[in-house]
Write a protein that binds this DNA or RNA. Structure first.
Lengths: 352, 352
DNA sequence: CTGTTAGCGCGTTCAT
DNA sequence: ATGAACGCGCTAACAG
């Protein structure tokens, strides 16, 4: 019960339980309460007991702002949310954010969002968040070669980790990524096991490292299977582009009978093209995507795709930034394997 | 350039520009700088000029923690992210969060995330965020009748607004919702305009207010068109349930030739059922969904659906909580109309 | 109109 | 082992 001293200067009281309230309740000084919580070794076991009991009884929760002000650490991790596009499958941002929030929470952290429509705005948003000291670290998504955001954050000397490699051979970067090469190797092998020999790949332009990586998995599998590696298209990650590319691959003298794609968006565009030609995805032409987006499970037939282990990605990223915040010098890096989710679009038999 | 006074007590300096730095630079007191920024009327125009110049020159950004500590306001809005389910279309959470972050940003606020897997956990998360005074207000999604979260937040006396009505006739609640009734009226009218007379509705159980609302729109349209209103199913929001319901509606003596659904998830399940019977969505049976999720645009044929105006929803919600934070007593409420996005699944002619 | 004082809640330093 | 002082950066209240 707060005392009834008259309030003169400073903000109006808000009625929350403070360290001082706990101290009064336990009959000790505020510092001892602080120690009992943050530095248990410095306080006698019995005193500690009593203090913790008081903490519990009063339902004390430390004030985040006061702590941040004092410690120069907010325990907040900044993340950007970008606009999703209608012509692309979900960014999986909701799944990723959920996983990230969960991992952060397990580390006593929270996520603070910033919004930006391009990478220049994004850096500005980071700068603002950092300048107001409301953030300890950042998690970036979609890192790429020559990423200006990486350079900017380095410049600002703030800890961060990226979902996606920088592909610079940058050993100083903390990152987690999904092994697209392995994923496409698995997907290609899978459709080959269904008896396909004319297996195509619809991927992203060579300027995309991730695209090149996924392409490499397809090439590797084709070579291991003694298949041609000429059947591939490089297009933007766009439904229409996927559709168009499929039509071309099916117009060939020896048309593709299976098409592996770098994304669900492209794969669903391919499925559209098949339908337009009266072909069935699965029995006639096998199709695989990447991401296992909600659309993959809900389309007809179901789209075979590669599930990204987002929970693990999130865990690794949070671990990585926490380590950096705590002064680690060796950055965490991890490459995780996606998991093939087989649905009707790649099966000869009756669709699921 | 900070002076080289020896540092004794307190945390180590972090090198950020503070109010005091600006004051020194401009040759005024810290208070005047604060006033120049927050209370311009209280400072002489010329002084203000000089101060703002110094702010600009030094790149001063106010420290969020210090401000929050002093003002008892963090300018942070709490939002829960929940796990998405594989058997449902995207929650649109990414689009919603982006829009919300943008609106918040326009109000000088940021979003802080908390994660919870059910509504009990959710309340606990809110309580924690509030107890650590790291939040000014909350935005809830999916409010429903007898919502325990609403009761809990009221109890905590924290401002909040909900996406979704409480359906209690609660005039004290700040909410924004999308008019599902209107949406289904429009969708039903649309398929009727395509010549359909046996129009069904696959919706949620009567226990769902939102489900009842959408159903009512279908009923209303049917009555206005003198159509039967017996063709409807009440099922959980699940792909398989939609599929099953469609089979039943198509097994009738006078089968449905059009099926309007309460969600894209259900509609895509319906499309699956059609494919299983060798029927084409569009030319044979018209199908409409709700949400305009990414899967709707990317499936084949494209799924006609109702787009929720999420940017406006986000704007209204932020406006509503800001008003409450600033002491408004009259809660903002707004009901927005969804927009029909027509694609191949509801058209007789060639699919788009 | 401007400067001084004081304190928001916490944790490190120092003294006991 | 515990307590007192001090300051993180900011702003309301007051005095000049």
């Amino acid at each position: 019960m707060p005392e009834d001293r008259p309030h003169t200067r400073g903000p109006v009281p808000h009625g929350h339980v403070t360290l001082a309230d706990v101290a009064r309740h336990a009959g000790v000084s505020a510092q001892s309460v602080s120690n009992a919580l943050n530095n248990p070794a410095r306080v006698a076991p019995q005193t500690r007991e009593r203090i913790l009991a008081a903490v519990d009884e009063l339902g004390y929760l430390p004030n985040r702002s006061a702590r941040a002000l004092r410690n120069q650490r907010s325990r907040l991790i900044g993340v950007r949310v970008e606009a999703s596009r209608d012509d692309r499958a979900a960014l999986l941002l909701d799944q990723f954010l959920h996983a990230l929030a969960e991992s952060a929470s397990a580390n006593g952290c929270h996520l603070i969002l910033c919004q930006a429509d391009d990478e220049v705005e994004e850096v500005a948003a980071y700068r603002e968040l950092l300048g107001t000291t409301s953030v300890d670290a950042f998690v970036l998504t979609g890192a790429h070669a020559g990423d200006a955001r990486v350079a900017a954050l380095r410049d600002l000397r703030v800890p961060f980790a990226t979902f996606g490699r920088s592909w610079d051979g940058d050993t100083d970067l903390a990152w987690t990524d999904v092994d697209g090469r392995h994923g496409l190797y698995v997907a290609t092998s899978h459709v080959a096991a269904q008896g396909h020999r004319r297996i195509a790949h619809v991927g992203w332009p060579g300027s995309s490292d991730t695209g090149r990586d996924r392409l490499a998995g397809w090439v590797e599998a084709c070579k291991d299977l003694s298949l041609d590696t000429d059947l591939h298209a490089e297009v933007a990650d766009d439904f229409e582009e996927g559709r168009r590319a499929a039509h071309q691959l099916l117009d060939l003298a020896e048309p593709a009978t299976a098409i592996t794609c770098a994304s669900d968006t492209l794969a669903l565009g391919v499925c559209r093209a098949l339908a337009e030609r009266g072909l069935r995805a699965g029995p006639d032409v096998a199709v695989t995507g990447f991401d296992n987006s909600p659309a993959a499970a809900l389309s007809t037939p179901g789209l075979t795709s590669l599930r990204q282990p987002l929970e693990q990605v999130a865990h690794d990223l949070v671990t990585a930034v926490e380590a950096l915040v705590n002064g680690a010098t060796e950055p965490h890096q991890s490459l995780l394997r996606p998991e093939l989710v087989v649905r009707g679009s790649s099966l000869r038999g009756p669709t699921d």
